[in-house]
Amino acid sequence: MTAPTQTGLQVQGVHLWRGERHVLRGVHLDAPLGTFWHVRGPNGAGKTSLLRVVAGFLWPEDGKVVWNGQETRHLGDEFGAQMACLGHEPALKADLTARENIRYLVGLRRAVTDVELDAAFSRLGIAEHADRPTRMLSAGQKRRAAMVRVLLSDASLWLLDEPFTNLDVAGVELFTGLLAEHAAGGGVVLATTHQPIPAPGVRTLELA
């Protein structure tokens, strides 16, 4: 499945209203493949809204989102398959083990083997917790488990909303490394955080 052009992600003049509030006022973003964007701004500046617009969960009042030369609203499910999202909620069922959760969520997209799962869990440093029920994991461990899902998703566009929440210092470093690696490998990363992202080549989009 080759897209007509490999130009990455463009957000063009997006305006979004939430009730009476004009949250996004003409946001532009050009994120070609291989770029790592840090979306910054004070609380309520619309960081999450921007990510949700890009993901297609919110429809903007004006403007458009373009992925590899095509408007995402015309791409439908095909666009979803090329995108991985890490939101505030990790989408893990408390009664299932981390492995069962991730195997299911990745399995919706592609066939996944135990070897791959093991490798990804150890990469995120939670190999010994993979077979515990998710309800027994700490918030940081859940976040790492959710990152396993992103890592295995085969998506080239990563949308990460506050990925560093609940992570320890080593975790922040690990996540930063994974995001930078994904961008370097030809993917696109959009991440919102309040703290600076200590990786080379990170571009910043400031929302007011």
Partner: peptide
């Protein structure tokens, strides 16, 4: 949300 972006109908 994960369902919607899973690429599955």
């Amino acid at each position: 949300e994960q369902w919607v972006i899973s690429g599955q109908p």
